[in-house]
Design a protein around this nucleic acid. Structure first.
Length: 424
RNA sequence: GUGGGCGUAGCUCAGUUGGUUAGAGCGCCUGGUUGUGGUCCAGGAGGUCGGGGGUUCGAGUCCCCUCGUUCACCCCA
């Protein structure tokens, strides 16, 4: 392969049609589903003060080693970072502007993590998500989960599995603290049977050990105390209300007592969507939970929050695996072939486009044969052909590219004709 | 950050134990007479074999480094 001077940076890629069309369609579908549940879109900056993301927790990899951070040109320079996720940005926006709760927002866009790329894992990736701030009503949790499940369904995905857990309340009196202590002492007692990596993880955050996929750790983890047994009364009630809500609307789920999400801010409800159709280890297509302390950690008022983020790139892979959500058509309706110099194509295309008909034409005054090839490739149903004859008589030839039939049509009647044919 | 696989035309790939001007299919371009695509036929363009260094009379083929990619760990979407 020739060696171009530049390539897309590691872990990033260029997305061309028709894949880009499909990605856009997926985001559009999400926008429709979210709006239907009363969510409005928030467009926040792609970079933030590094401190915003520091609040995600100093024991998370996302914060400690995966941040794309840099200094701006101010005096003194400000330390900024490309967003590794959007929940923190949304909470910062809430703390800054104090919208009236409950604040229901959805978002979409690129996020950045300096990781080792892999199938379904990029340094720049796209997520869609929602957050509800300002209520800890368990039915908000349910609404949010049902929204995600409904979105998967609207794409045609059938095999997405929902795993549910509660991490209990955080804070000094919270049940999470009691559980962490119990878990830590259990794991410490069995440390000799854990893998070396898990022993390191244990120091940092015992909860994360539950996430280990190493076979060596399996036995110890299986015997570990379970969060659900340590829930305080309030958290337990919240959890069973969420479960009751899911059952009321018929959304299937599985309690997954070892589901630990990677970001430290999660409290109480946590959940994850997995697509078993995806090969490899990257089969989580989305996840979320409560982050009741995050707004406060960012300097805002004590505010409950619940939300999720879905990985667009992985969802598309899951759609491929199930053979659903086909790439939408991304061609034009009509292709104009002009062998009289091109000015007629210019005029006809302009007329068609003004009438709302997608039209394209060839450039460079190529032969009719070459232009017909372009017409064929464009995906258009019709070719409008303009030669010297048509030019003289004020007509065009309208050719149906499917069956090859064609007819002469007066120039003035073209838009009308096409409108009628397209309606068929 | 750690380990394994891979890296030949735009795409998917062949390239014998290192040996003459590096190939195929698809795609692209131009033709197949006088204005017509999608099928068919014939031509053509396009590669310093990811990049750099080394071994050798000679390397796409061997060695080292590097970059990218892929799989796994880690982590997460």
């Amino acid at each position: 392969m020739a060696a171009p001077n530049f390539r897309a940076p590691k872990g990033t890629r260029d997305i061309f049609p028709p894949e880009s069309t499909r990605l856009r369609a997926l985001i559009d579908e999400f926008a429709v589903v979210a709006a239907r549940s009363g969510f409005g879109e928030v467009i926040s900056p792609i970079f933030e003060d590094l401190g915003v993301f520091r609040r995600l927790g100093e024991s998370t990899d996302v914060v400690t080693k995966e941040m794309f951070d840099f200094f701006d040109k101010g005096t003194p320079p400000q330390r900024l970072a490309l967003r590794p996720e959007l929940t923190a940005s949304i909470c910062r926006a809430y703390a800054e502007h104090r919208p009236v709760p409950p604040w229901k927002v959805w978002y979409e866009g690129p996020q950045f993590r300096y990781e080792q790329p892999q199938a379904g894992r990029y340094r720049q990736f796209t997520q869609v998500g929602v957050e509800v701030l300002g209520t800890d009503d368990p039915q908000a949790d349910v609404d949010v989960i049902v929204l995600a499940a409904g979105f998967f369904e609207s794409l045609g995905l059938r095999q997405v599995e929902l795993a549910l857990n509660s991490l209990g309340s955080s804070g000094h009196q919270g049940s999470r603290v009691a559980y962490e202590q119990a878990l830590r002492s259990y794991l410490v007692a069995h440390a000799n049977d854990l893998s070396a990596q898990s022993q390191v993880t244990l120091e940092r955050n015992p909860l994360r050990v539950l996430d280990s996929k190493r076979s060596q750790d399996r036995e110890v983890i299986a015997g570990a105390p379970v969060m659900v047994d340590y829930l305080d009364a309030e958290s337990a009630a919240h959890f069973s209300a969420v479960r009751a809500g899911l059952e009321a609307v018929g959304v299937a789920y599985e309690i997954s007592p070892r589901l630990v999400r990677g970001l430290d801010y999660y409290t109480r409800t946590t959940f994850e969507f997995a697509a078993p159709g995806l090969t490899g280890a990257q089969n989580a297509v989305g996840g979320g939970g409560r982050f009741d302390g995050l707004v406060e950690a960012l300097g805002g008022p004590a505010t409950a929050g619940i939300g999720f983020a879905l990985g667009v790139d992985r969802i598309l892979l899951a759609c491929d695996a199930e053979g659903v959500f086909d790439t939408p058509f991304c061609g034009v309706d009509v292709f104009v072939v002009d062998v009289t110099g091109g000015t007629e194509a210019l005029k006809v295309c302009t007329d068609l486009r003004q009438a709302g008909i997608a039209a394209d034409r060839g450039y460079g005054g190529r032969s009719m044969k070459a232009q017909m090839k372009l017409a064929n490739r464009s995906g258009a149903d019709f070719a409008v052909i303009i030669g010297e004859d048509e030019l003289r008589s004020g007509e065009v030839t309208l050719r149906h590219l499917g069956d090859g039939t064609q007819q002469r049509v007066a120039r003035a009647a073209l838009v009308n004709q096409l409108g009628k044919k397209r309606a068929l």
